[in-house]
Simulated assay, not measured.
Amino acid sequence: MAAHSVFNLAPATSLLRSNPSQRPCQPSSVPILHSSFLSSETLSICSSNSNPSWQLTRRRPLSATVTLSLPTANPDRAVSVSPDKIPKWSRRTIKSFAMAELEARKLKYPTTGTESLLMGLLIEGTSSAAKFLLANGITLFKVREESIKLLGKGDMYFFSPEHPPLTEDAQRALDWAFDEKLKSGEGGEITTSHLLLGVWSQAESPGHKILSALGFNDDKAKELGSMIQEPGYHG
Score class of each variant (00 low, 15 high):
T192E: 05
D169P: 00
A3H: 10
L211K: 01
M227P: 00
E189R: 12
E223W: 06
R77S: 06
A2N: 04
V30G: 00
V6L: 15
S44W: 10
A203N: 09
T67S: 15
S184D: 08
S160Q: 11
S50P: 00
V81E: 03
L166A: 03
L174D: 00
A3P: 08
E41A: 02
M99R: 04
V199R: 03
G125W: 09
K149N: 09
R59T: 12
S201W: 09
S50N: 07
K88I: 15
A221Q: 01
P27Y: 07
V199S: 05
T111P: 00
L195E: 07
S50I: 12
F159W: 05
W200M: 06
P71R: 05
T139P: 03
D219W: 06
A64W: 09
D84V: 15
T191R: 06
I228D: 03
D179K: 08
D76C: 01
E124G: 02
K131N: 11
D155K: 14
F141Y: 05
K88M: 15
K209M: 13
T191Q: 12
A177Y: 06
A10V: 15
A3L: 13
L211D: 01
T57K: 10
S40R: 06
N136T: 09
L182M: 08
L68M: 13
G154Y: 13
I123P: 00
D76V: 03
C25G: 06
I94S: 07
V30Q: 04
G113L: 13
G188T: 11
T112Q: 06
W176F: 14
P164L: 14
G207L: 13
F216L: 00
S48A: 03
A135W: 02
T167H: 04
A104T: 07
T65K: 04
F178K: 01
G137A: 04
K131W: 05
L214M: 02
S39H: 12
A135R: 12
E41G: 03
R17H: 05
D155G: 11
R105F: 13
T139F: 10
R17N: 11
L150H: 02
A173D: 02
T13D: 09
K142L: 13
Q229M: 14
L16D: 05
P75M: 12
P87K: 15
K88H: 15
L70C: 03
P61N: 04
I123K: 06
N19P: 02
G137W: 05
L68A: 09
F132S: 05
E162H: 08
L117A: 02
N217F: 03
